[in-house]
């Protein structure tokens, strides 16, 4: 049986036109909310167009009308399964205090691998300084203020007068932008099976290891702690969190322990990635402010305050990540 195409098109065209008008209105007014009768009508028109497409493909085999209907059905299908209106409204406080730490804990193995990559880099950096200190500049060449003798820098920094936070906003903005970029990079390069994520963490660990060993060996441990701890106690964990997200991606790439396809594996981890990298970005905004407005001011009188601030901040961060957002388990019921 072959369809009378002319009659078919004339009969169905008003419905197609109506559906096209609804879609056009939706595209032009993204915030337009349909009433229940309008939604029902839209669903009916979609079903009718779908049915027409099937009929046309089965009984007529005509290309152009079929293309038109495919286009119409595709647009309607996409709108009909629109998800943005049905999602739970974003609650930033709940997300930061509950979702972020619990997501972090759910992927603790990835975090531990990320942390160890960084620490091994640190040990390697310290080893370089112990056995081949002449290579110091190879690792910290881009940080010109670190290339000299630590005690010279300490003497120079401690002599400086308070500058009234001169150019501190610019500096903190640069720190935030750069550190957030590095954290996102640590995450996205996880797509290469985690190799570059581990390398990035290892390399950052080396730099820290070189600096730490250099200052301690020169007897400047207090200056170093007072300088790095206030912001480093947040900044370094945030970058390691970026590495954690990268290793979650690497795990999805390998697909160990699951029969799901790559697309499905990515679909599962997508919100976790955003949560971790979003939380890390917020931490880096804070770290940028601390580094700019507190860490850069040195002197024997402020070291205890800065060190105490850094230690308390680190303890608070560890407690937050380990305990925040835990739900109390209901008491188990004992039989008998």
């Amino acid at each position: 049986m072959i369809l009378d195409l002319n009659q078919f098109v004339s009969k169905e065209r008003p419905y197609w036109d109506e559906l096209t008008a609804v879609l056009k209105k939706q595209e032009e007014q993204p915030d337009w909310k349909m009433s229940l009768p309008e939604a029902r009508r839209f669903h009916y028109l979609y079903q009718r167009a779908s049915s027409d497409l099937v009929k046309l493909k089965t009984f007529a085999g005509e290309v152009e009308v079929a293309q038109f209907l495919e286009n119409l059905v595709a647009r309607s299908y996409s709108r009909l399964h629109e998800k943005r209106g049905s999602t739970i409204p974003f609650r930033p406080v709940h997300w930061f205090l509950r979702v972020f730490p619990s997501t972090f804990r759910r992927h603790w193995i990835a975090f531990m691998i990320s942390l160890f990559s960084f620490l091994i880099g640190g040990l390697f950096g310290a080893g370089v300084m112990k056995f081949a200190p002449q290579h110091k500049t190879s690792f910290i060449g881009s940080f010109s203020h670190l290339s000299g003798k630590p005690s010279d820098r300490v003497a120079k920094e401690e002599k400086k007068q308070f500058d009234g936070f001169e150019r501190r906003n610019t500096f903190s903005a640069q720190l935030m932008a750069n550190n957030i970029r590095v954290t996102i990079l640590a995450m996205v390069v996880g797509v290469f099976f985690g190799i570059f994520t581990v390398f990035l963490l290892f390399y950052n660990g080396i730099i820290l290891g070189v600096v730490v060993f250099d200052y301690i060996a020169d007897g400047q441990g207090v200056f170093l702690t007072g300088w790095l701890l206030p912001h480093g106690s947040v900044e370094i964990p945030a970058i390691i969190l970026g590495g954690q997200a990268g290793l979650i991606i690497a795990h999805a790439m390998f697909g160990w322990g699951t029969n799901l396809r790559l697309a499905q594996r990515f679909r599962r981890i997508r919100s976790d990635l955003l949560t971790i990298v979003g939380g890390a970005a917020l931490m880096l905004v804070w770290a940028g402010l601390v580094e700019s407005f507190l860490s850069q001011y040195h002197g024997p009188t402020v070291y205890p305050i800065k060190i105490a601030f850094g230690v308390l901040q680190l303890i608070a961060l560890i407690c937050f990540l380990l305990f925040a957002g835990r739900t109390r388990q209901p008491d188990s019921i004992h039989a008998g």
Binding site: S78, H81, R84, L274
Partner: peptide
């Protein structure tokens, strides 16, 4: 840009595809 199943995009998908631009 569309979801590969023909659906509309979620905010998560949009942010992820733009963050991966770095790589």
């Amino acid at each position: 840009v569309m979801d590969e199943r023909g659906l509309s995009l979620t905010l998560g998908q949009i942010v992820i595809r733009n963050l991966f631009r770095l790589v």
